[in-house]
Design a protein around this nucleic acid. Sequence first.
DNA 1: CATATTAATCGCAATATTACGATAATAGAT
DNA 2: ATCTATTATCGTAATATTGCGATTAATATG
Lengths: 110, 110
Amino acid sequence: MGASKTNAFSVEDIEVSAYLKALGHPARIAILNLLIKKQACICGDIVDEISLAQSTISQHLKALKAVNLIKGDIDGVSVCYCINESEWRKAQIMIQDFLEKAKFPKEKCC
Amino acid sequence: MGASKTNAFSVEDIEVSAYLKALGHPARIAILNLLIKKQACICGDIVDEISLAQSTISQHLKALKAVNLIKGDIDGVSVCYCINESEWRKAQIMIQDFLEKAKFPKEKCC
DNA sequence: CATATTAATCGCAATATTACGATAATAGAT
DNA sequence: ATCTATTATCGTAATATTGCGATTAATATG
């Protein structure tokens, strides 16, 4: 096996976990922090700031693009990446709703 | 390779991405939803509700315990799992802070 | 004590992820 | 047209994840 049994889970669980999974790597967090700080980034700038190979950065960018959290516009020979606002807000709402709905056992339990 | 170059990233990025990674699987989201709904759950109840093998559920529980988002108390022959409130709040704050600090490009960019 | 119940762990197989260097592909400059 | 810069993709290797059945360990129960 190794692949997740996507048929066993609800569409919502799959969707929110896909966002969370895409965010679940320090390199991708670092990339997003950079995009947030600079508003937008040429791919090469990211490579300069994060000590990973260019091909590795490119892969992480691809993972973030796959869930639409970022978009990249071709600008001549380079590519300008930035946060995709609408999708970010959507992910934010889904994740926050999930985190906020947690109720904690008052009395005993564990 | 295959392992992430943890030395290349900030402690904060590693910490928040560890929470996000632990949450980044539909089975673990489903488990947490169940724990939230029922307040607390015997492991066997989780196995009954989610169509995965007992050993697989146990592994996912281990992953959630590894980042302290849940705790399990031995109750005789069974184990009662529930959300770990303090760690949940900590993760929630870290994740929400990250998501909320995003600023979006006003004019052009991409 | 023997037996059942429950959950963790082991061993294994399939697949996914992470990382890198090398190679393409594209656009700009000479 | 040739060269350069930039980024994506390919190929490969190492490691991690997911999932399952079988086994183990621990505690009840007869």
